[in-house]
Write a protein that binds this DNA or RNA. Structure first.
Length: 215
DNA sequence: GGTCGGATCATCT
DNA sequence: GATGATCCGACCG
């Protein structure tokens, strides 16, 4: 098997190299409000990214690429060029989708945690067993989009899974907090989410109501 | 509405 | 052999 994205090639879209080649926290923040378009298995599904987490690379103890473990077969995509997918399985049953960022070789990635559905709600709902199409949580997001490890290393500039960054949301709509579910570096404020928005995880909070502003 | 425990396995030590 | 960037259904109030 050949992995051209491991050889430091440019992505199909130079803008993506520029956008995703930036430091991970900036990318995680600016991905809020961006559209994620999946045409996996011929079903078109679109959502607005409303929650992300940044994982900072070797110096981040919560990262899969922390110095302690370094480069492994699982995390090899993180060490490749930016704008590619890092997909992994967690708890033996859920897929999680990340976008690699930063310079080629620097293992940074943004975990995509939640989407507010924009199109294809019927498909998303069906894939989730008739439940709400709202993709709140990284595992649900992958189910709703049809993402599995088939997409490992995929270039987000290309179908069947594309990220269409827009103008960054105004600061007033963006909140930060510690990352969810991590034990190491739990207080690092690297989770970014849209204020008061449907789909966003609320540890200890009330149920979500509003939809994402500023579409 | 909120909390709790079980499911389930690739990956790394 | 232990661990985990989670989800869901059951149960409680």
């Amino acid at each position: 098997m050949d992995f051209p994205w491991l050889r430091g090639q440019q992505s199909a879209d130079p803008f993506h190299d520029e956008f995703f080649g930036r430091p991970v926290a900036s990318v995680a923040r600016d991905l809020l409000g961006a559209r994620l378009v999946s045409t996996i298995h011929g079903e078109r599904v679109v959502g607005v990214i409303v929650e992300t987490e940044a994982y900072m690379g070797a110096a981040d103890p919560a990262s899969h690429a922390a110095t302690r473990s370094g480069r492994t077969n699982r995390n090899r995509a993180m060490f490749g060029p930016p704008g590619r997918a890092y997909v992994y399985r967690i708890y033996g049953m859920h897929w999680c989708l990340n976008v690699v960022t930063g310079e080629d070789g620097d293992p940074q990635a943004v975990l995509l945690r939640a989407l507010d559905p924009l199109d294809g709600e019927d498909v998303m709902s069906e894939r989730r067993g008739g439940r709400s199409p709202v993709a709140s949580g990284p595992g649900r997001l992958c189910v709703a989009l049809g993402v599995t490890d088939e997409l490992y290393g995929h270039d987000f500039a290309l179908p069947p899974l594309q990220i269409l960054p827009g103008w960054p949301l105004p600061d007033g709509l963006v909140e930060r907090s510690g990352r969810i579910g991590v034990s190491a570096a739990a207080d690092w404020p690297l989770r970014f989410f849209v204020r008061n928005c449907r789909g966003v995880s609320r540890p200890g909070g009330s149920s979500p109501r509003t939809i994402v502003p500023g579409r």
